[in-house]
Design a protein around this nucleic acid. Sequence first.
DNA 1: AAATAAAACGAACGCTCGTTCTATTTTTGT
DNA 2: ACAAAAATAGAACGAGCGTTCGTTTTATTT
Lengths: 269, 269
Amino acid sequence: MTSMIDLKECDKTDASELCESPVDLSSFTSFLESFPLQGEQLYRTVFDRHAEIIQTQKARFAVANLEKILSATFEVSAVSGFDRMSLRDLSRQTGMSMGAIYSCISKKEDIALMVADIVRLSNDLIQQHAMLAGSTWQSVEQSIKFHLYASTLLQPWYFFLYFETRSLPQAQQEESKQIELDGINGFEAQILAGVEAGEFATENARTVANAIVVLLEDWYLKPWKTKSLSINKEGRYELQLGEIEEKINTYNQSIIELVRKLLATDRSE
Amino acid sequence: MTSMIDLKECDKTDASELCESPVDLSSFTSFLESFPLQGEQLYRTVFDRHAEIIQTQKARFAVANLEKILSATFEVSAVSGFDRMSLRDLSRQTGMSMGAIYSCISKKEDIALMVADIVRLSNDLIQQHAMLAGSTWQSVEQSIKFHLYASTLLQPWYFFLYFETRSLPQAQQEESKQIELDGINGFEAQILAGVEAGEFATENARTVANAIVVLLEDWYLKPWKTKSLSINKEGRYELQLGEIEEKINTYNQSIIELVRKLLATDRSE
DNA sequence: AAATAAAACGAACGCTCGTTCTATTTTTGT
DNA sequence: ACAAAAATAGAACGAGCGTTCGTTTTATTT
């Protein structure tokens, strides 16, 4: 009996089954080929993980509508916030009727919960990947890169969760804080392991860990800082894949370099 | 004629007149004695700078009510967000009637505009102060300290502006971005001056400047990261002055140390 | 103490919100 | 091609929103 209850909750927490083959971090392009949370697969994951509340049964319809709903949500609420976005705005933006929208959600808040769930899942994938690396320095580098890649691909999702956490039930608000703390704890543990191994030197591992996390957040929260954007015909920002690759790489290098200085073991290196 | 129009706008941008005597940064305690934006003076400034929209004429009443309104706004919207805070919530929390509230504001949005104005003013004071320091390193240190002190004292204001920017008209949204960019530009200029003078060494002044700004933001955005808080009888967090002094100092030291490493000229130091 | 001005009150208004519900259209299975 | 099932449309509902305004209370002046 208890195992059935566990199973019911289980589909919300399992990250492992999503990603049997390891994600390839050698470049953003190859990341895109191996990261599971994107395109149709991404919205199918949303559908699978919220099957109980979604009235639409056929995956074909649900997946297409979830994509419309979530994309429109990101577009509208990036400017005015989730609370100010009415479901009539959403109806207009998606071209769907109220009825159609309400067959993918049971209430407005569900949209925010779906986003939170996916971001949590993505972060689980990052955490999971960090275990695979060889040396400590490599594992730090890999974690940073993975985070940059994932939060670039899922930028609207990460951005939304950060700014709309307060539209969530308080339990989920606490959970969001915990995700950030877990991120810091993860880097702190890696750094301390490196210090132990004589690979790094620092007196304040937590400060360095915190700086890394905060700089990673900066990347998806303030794209206007680093990205010079071109605007397409729909009035949206848009970059060529090659340009994105280059931008990420530049930012990645600047974080790596910064961390390297903060953790340098000797002055002659 | 044009000069009169200029004058009308002028009271929203002048920071100089507020602060003839320089702010004392030797400790948080002495900062509190010299920083103008606090206590009754703070709300009187709000009153003076928004006299056109405030119906209440006597400063005595307006100042008291503004304090109630803004404090309640911070309290309520820190949990649920500005949009979800209804004016009936505000009425309940302040003990004021709708009519009383509406004699201090002309519309809900005004509350957010007042906050934005004060934060902008506070940032102007910081910028202004940076000019006074001797060496470049001292001016960087002073700017960081000033920012930490001001954003501790005005934490709810800074926090509110960061998370509620999207409740503002778009012109003010752009302005908020500009404030952040100005902050980065300020530190970048200081760093570049230091490099010029041979005091610092770095190949990426902007990255370092950005890291400083982001860490300063972290201080007022995520107090739960660094502060171990005690809870008073009203259920609010509360620290002794001495504890605050110590917390700020610790965080200040960790930023300074981090920046020092990033800007070190040689490896033997 | 009376007269006047300012401030506070709170019910009422019009509107928009999230949500529901039934009729209609589209898809599916045979 | 047709019946059953699923998905969509959009009008309708009640709650709650920001805001207004006539009245009452409080403060100030005469």
